[in-house]
Design a protein around this nucleic acid. Sequence first.
RNA 1: UGGGCGGUAGACUAAUGGUAGGUCAAGUGCCUUUGGAGCACUUCGUCCAGGUUCGAAUCCUGGCCGCCCAGCCA
Length: 573
Amino acid sequence: MSTNPQNTNASAPAEAARPSHFIRDIFVEDQKTKKYGDAVFQTRFPPEPNGYLHLGHAKAICLDFGMADDFGGLTNLRFDDTNPEKEEQEYVDSIMEDVRWLGFEWDRLCYASDYFDQLFEWAIQLIKAGKAYVDDHSAEEIRQHRGTLTEPGENSPYRNRTVEENLDLFLRMAKGEFPDGTRVLRAKIDMASPNLNMRDPVMYRILHASHHRTGDKWCIYPMYDYAHGQSDSLEKVTHSMCTLEFADHQPLYRWYIEQLGIFPSQQIEFDRLSLTYTLLSKRKLLQLVQEKRVSGWDDPRMPTLSGIRRRGFTAAAIRNFCAAIGASRTNGSTDIEMLEHFQREELNRTSPRAMAVLRPLKVVIENYPEGQEELVEVANNPEDPSAGLRQVPFSREIYIEQDDFREVPPPKYYRLSPGKEVRLRNAYFITAKEVVKDAAGNVVEVRCTYDPASRGGNSPDGRKVKSTIHWVSAKHAISAEVRLYDKLFINPNPSDVPEGGSFLDNLNPNSLEVIADAKLEPSLATAKPGDRIQFERMGYFCVDIESKPEALVFNRTLPLKDTWAKIERKAGS
RNA sequence: UGGGCGGUAGACUAAUGGUAGGUCAAGUGCCUUUGGAGCACUUCGUCCAGGUUCGAAUCCUGGCCGCCCAGCCA
């Protein structure tokens, strides 16, 4: 079946229960009425290999493969490669990788280009039946004859050519006798149809372009509408799911199938995924890549599957998210927080913890013996005792987060400040005594004392402390580059721009902050690309693909929820 | 303005003529060696107007609002 066992986490709880939605209802009904007899349900995921897959495709993939899985059916991966000018092998490779990463395996690998011969034969059949004709009009002339949304189109003067003449011309088109754009093959339907797709749609255009799979065999290529339904039909696809903008194409999808008398696949349209603060348009994502607004298709800020994978997102979280949003026919916009929720839910459960100080502030513990060091025992994951324990070195000089000390604490600030006591996680209670400042008046060091009796983090006298902060022993710390990623856009709807503006105006100038020299606990020295770790109190991170043992690089996947930041924000506003 | 498709809390989504429910977000409290996590509680909704019905989010009529369509792209 389609779920790839390599990508399912055996220890993970069952994925979210399948909520009902209208597509599931159709499957249930078709199963009940045995609409397709004893044949198993067949679906397909039909990307055009002209870009990288993104979260919108993840929704489609989960629906195509997920529905088939749930009903004992099969799913094909089919590349919709009818336009040689935009399609490349690089994209087909990335698409296969992404589908598998998401956790799915196709039954058959197909290409629309596999059907070029059959499609050509069917075109001849339609010509012979008087249902298709060669039009000598230019693209411009065809457009002029198409009419408008409110006015019918006009018949082309070439519409009534004889079958013989159409056949001759079409064959010569295929032989390469005519230059690009000089003729097309059109279906003869109805130029007065209120549905513009039915106004004698183009079936074939002349394109002297090399195709990534068929090479130079063809110089005419079928249009999407002429290829898609028949491809579905050839693969015996029972449920052909696509997005809402194709609803107007359904009459044409059915027209070709009916005229040809072939297996009747049914098209079902659902709403495209729209996410706040996120752009899910291949064209615009391509622009970001080409204009180098991001480092590439796999920039961790990109909503591409390769981007969020590099960012540290997990396939299971994306699947759970897709299950939660379901499918409908309403166009709305899902809060990005929903996606982040499912990601945090999984990472909280599965990520080992470590201590890392992103913006170091030196702390000297004055009453801790000079030269002394010790190992403290720390849980790898408090959510998962089976993750075990590790030893973390402690010594007289440590780093804490700059944010965890305030010389003048604001109200409700529980962390370190002069005279206040806090707990160093898994280590000791310390009390701030005095600060050391540089010439500019910045605090560069905090002098503290510790309570030797509080080892492990509890005082025998039962004394409570308001806050626990993380730390790293200065002597043992390792350095790493940490990349803090934030939303790529500042506007919930990146496409929402004033007249004459561009979505680029909504780019978040602070979407990436690089910390060159973060201080990490030494256990992180062996972290490998792809490893996911929670830096305690800071967020979920993963080791970047560029990371090397001597030059570690961590990406922030998501910050932890930050209640203090919320309090501060409210106090500030 | 022709055609197609839709409107359920701030967001997404159930309820298929019979108690408007779930998730996210927001808020309050509890708990806590991550201001994390967890737990409990709370706020907030059927686009409008008529009609059918014992009963309407659901069916009917009429409005209003939103999205899609005039590529030899998919």
